[in-house]
Design a protein around this nucleic acid. Structure first.
Lengths: 235, 235
DNA sequence: AAATGACCAAATATGATTATCTGGTCAAAT
DNA sequence: ATTTGACCAGATAATCATATTTGGTCATTT
């Protein structure tokens, strides 16, 4: 039932296949968890041979990293598509998007059911860089008078983090039926962000611009990383 | 080196010994973690025989429960001593007290380093009842115009929970040197609570009274539970 | 009556052995 | 050139036997 050989070396086909593999991986991981999902499984589900997967990624881990990065790119795209103009809108959309994306959501919430042994790792790192960018964005907003200037950069970041994580994590530990609707959670986070960090000043054009710029930067970074993850490079 | 026998059956002495055992347990658990702390260890450190511990508690678990309950009572006492008059003050003091008490803190943050196999358990339950009381308190405040009335009870609770957990958990995952000072964290939580839930209305006498009443209720419950934990009853 | 600590059963750890699985490679097929 | 899948070594799991630990009891002592 084999048909080794070489259908055209079309780079577009190559990329399309990478995505197909990632699709398969996503489904399997969400269903069985990272630990229980083997490369063989993924290959079978994607309709390719195991070796083919290693044509795309050096290691199993690299495949998973690519998967998360793709999810992240899509998340950012969703947020962008909503065209948030202010910090609260941005955070609200971010939260909503997070709640919609099981993989990234699991990574954020630290769901060991899904992530298996990777639970801890994926959380810690990756943060520092993006955090810095977010910190700069908040600084800019403070300069523009859109967020409180009486907090240090660390404090502003901690505050936003607290709101997002503070809603996501406890909610995820609640039994299904006691959780607030996802949409409502996003609204509450947005609202709380406005109240806890905002100044009440009407947001000007410059805030919109800064927000857009920040999203550009985030997407740029995310897209770049994904590209690296899809172009054989590992680590 | 033994001296079995029966120094007076003074109930005060009995209680004092219970506390001595708990002191020993607390120290050992904080140093070695729950899993690695044996009943024998505790007995030795407390200067009693192992059997004596079982004169106080039916199981090792009951001892640990008592320990947490005592810590909770002390926490509540500390909060009370600060005489918070408003919700933000209450939450701020609660956070500060939480940060000062390694055991309860570990329980809240879910520190498996300390709690060992109990990490999960202790979190989930025990909540429902106290949660209900807190919910009623928030309701009362809403009625008094001290907190926003445009939120459901669940939402108000979720919001406060988010603030406290949202600060404690991410901070606990940060490397020591990047954490904000405990005191500052408490201030930020208090401030955020005021902004996110407050109405801006000046707090009246009735708010103070409601807050005090709530603390009374909490302490009452906590003290009652501790008493049960120290008076042989197990479960 | 009150406290002890030797004692026991059950749990847990250790180790040795074997079996199974799975990440990753690469010669072969086209 | 490209894809495959048999193949391999190392990791992981399963099994079984043995040793150690430890939660909990209770006859004994004061």
């Amino acid at each position: 039932m084999a048909r080794p050989g070489r259908p055209p070396q079309d780079p577009a086909r190559h990329l399309e296949r990478a995505h197909r593999i990632l699709d398969a991986a996503a489904e399997l991981i969400l269903r069985w968890g990272y630990d229980k999902t083997t490369v063989e499984d993924v290959a079978r589900a994607a309709g390719v041979a195991k070796g083919t997967i290693y044509l795309h990624w050096k290691t199993r881990d690299a495949l998973f990293t690519a998967l998360l990065r793709r999810d992240r790119v899509r998340l950012v795209e969703e947020v962008r598509a909503a065209e948030p103009a202010t910090l609260p809108e941005l955070i609200g959309e971010l939260t909503a998007a997070l709640l919609r994306r099981p993989l990234t959501r699991a990574a954020v919430v630290g769901d060991s059911e899904v992530l298996g042994k990777l639970t801890r790792q994926k959380l810690e790192r990756g943060t520092s860089e993006s955090d810095a960018a977010f910190g700069r964005y908040l600084d800019e907003l403070a300069r523009l008078g859109a967020v409180r200037a009486d907090l240090t950069a660390d404090e502003r970041t901690a505050l936003v983090t607290a709101l997002v994580y503070g809603f996501l994590i406890p909610q995820s530990m609640l039994p299904q039926d006691r959780r607030l609707p996802d949409k409502r959670v996003a609204e509450l986070v947005a609202d709380a962000t406005a109240r806890a960090l905002g100044t009440g000043a009407p947001p000007g054009q410059d805030v919109t611009r800064a927000t857009r710029a920040h999203l550009d930067e985030i997407e740029e970074t995310a897209a770049h990383r994904l590209a690296r993850s899809l172009g054989q490079e590992t680590r």
